[in-house]
Design a protein around this nucleic acid. Structure first.
Lengths: 225, 225
DNA sequence: AGCCCTGAAATTGTATCCAACGAGGCGAAA
DNA sequence: TTTCGCCTCGTTGGATACAATTTCAGGGCT
């Protein structure tokens, strides 16, 4: 192909770009579960060789996004509703613990940034929920950032990483897109409560709100399907 | 090079063999944290090319065993004592929850296999703790299997995988080798209690024992360093 | 003396080529 | 007609060749 530097964003390895792009496509639902992934096809699509594509796929497999079977191929991992519920349950366990720690350890910066993110989400209240695809995706990104900020405020990197891994494979964007406006507003309200619990340094409250928040989301999801 | 099938164990990809071997060397402490990993060196040691070695390293990085920095190289990940403590704390959280679930959901097979593993560990009571390297490693493997069995009995695959990941990077063999005979016997006793809790289907008891078991191990470790 | 610049060596990242394996189709025999 | 076996093809796994980047030593400059 001989196009050494196709993308302007320098410094990024081709393998990383491929990884990120495929990941986004899976999380965003553009690549359906069960769909086959062929190295040569992707290589051509990215104007790269199979080598970095392969590297990206190995990483995706390690992160639980795809299933690789030797000499046979790679498919987007399928998850049953039960597995998705499990993911939410473990997230509830980890993130509620993190929220409790965060209530004890947060500093002013944490609170400021959470407020900022919350304002961003509230600003999206007026968007047309079914039509505005990009808007929904932005809200979802803010939601993820909010959760990550609380994980960071727990000051426990291991806890944060374990939870973040589950958030990723939880296909958040996809699930968020399915949320109704009502669910979204409940979510906003619970985030507000979370901030309040952190402000007043109340670990038990923060923990309970986070658990309720995540298990509630799980149930909304389960009810739809 | 040109030695297409060096190892008799067929069916295994070269990349998998390299992955497993490096992983064992890191977990076993034969590769020290901070040590540099050079692809070409490993490739020669395994009589392979750099391609499968590189694939293995990417996986190891994904699993948190090594740090890859672009164009610079790969080093065995260093963990501070604080990080190791964190790992044990999150393990305590996940595995105690799993133990509680296991107490409710276990069947007779689970109990039988746990008994079997426990007998195996008890049989090692007579080994010379400082001299018998292989013996210690076997005990460590049995211990890991015991914990994995309880995770499996929780019937929550997500929970089990999250915990297993942390067990792996906890460098169990290494830590176990540092355990004194006294620690080992305390461990045996707690495993017995765990089985009793599962037999009597007592989730709260199982949960508490597991939490105490893991946090105790963390403290023994912290006290040494 | 200390610092920066430069260049060569070492090492990683990517491309291409070859080998091995699995999937599916076709044909022959029961 | 159905089923077993073989064969071809497509795809992945691995080897080798090449390009790009970092690192570090050494020399010149401030």
């Amino acid at each position: 192909m001989a196009s050494p530097k196709q993308d302007g964003r320098a410094g990024l390895r081709m393998a990383d770009r491929v990884y990120e792009e495929i990941r986004r496509e899976i999380v965003g639902g553009r690549l359906a579960p069960g769909e086959k992934i062929t190295e040569a096809v992707l290589a051509e699509r990215f104007g790269a060789s199979r080598t970095p594509v392969r590297s990206a796929i190995v990483r995706l497999a390690g992160d639980g996004f795809v299933d690789m079977t030797p000499h046979s191929g790679t498919v987007v991992k399928h998850r049953t509703q039960g597995e998705v519920s499990e993911i939410y349950e473990v997230r509830a366990l980890l993130e509620s613990t993190a929220a409790g720690l965060a209530a004890q350890r947060r500093d002013q910066r944490d609170l400021d940034e959470l407020e900022e993110l919350q304002r961003g989400m509230e600003a999206a209240s007026g968007l047309s929920w079914e039509a505005d695809e990009a808007g929904v995706e932005r809200v979802s990104a803010l939601n993820q950032a909010f959760h990550r900020r609380i994980l960071a405020a727990s000051r426990n990197v291991t806890l944060a990483e374990s939870a973040a891994r589950l958030m990723n494979i939880g296909f958040l964007i996809n699930t968020y897109a399915r949320f109704s406006r009502q669910e979204f507003e409940r979510s906003l309200f619970e985030h507000r409560q979370l901030i309040a619990a952190l402000v007043s340094r109340d670990p038990a409250w923060a923990e309970a709100v986070m658990r309720a928040h995540i298990l509630g989301a799980r149930n909304s999801l389960a009810a739809e399907q």
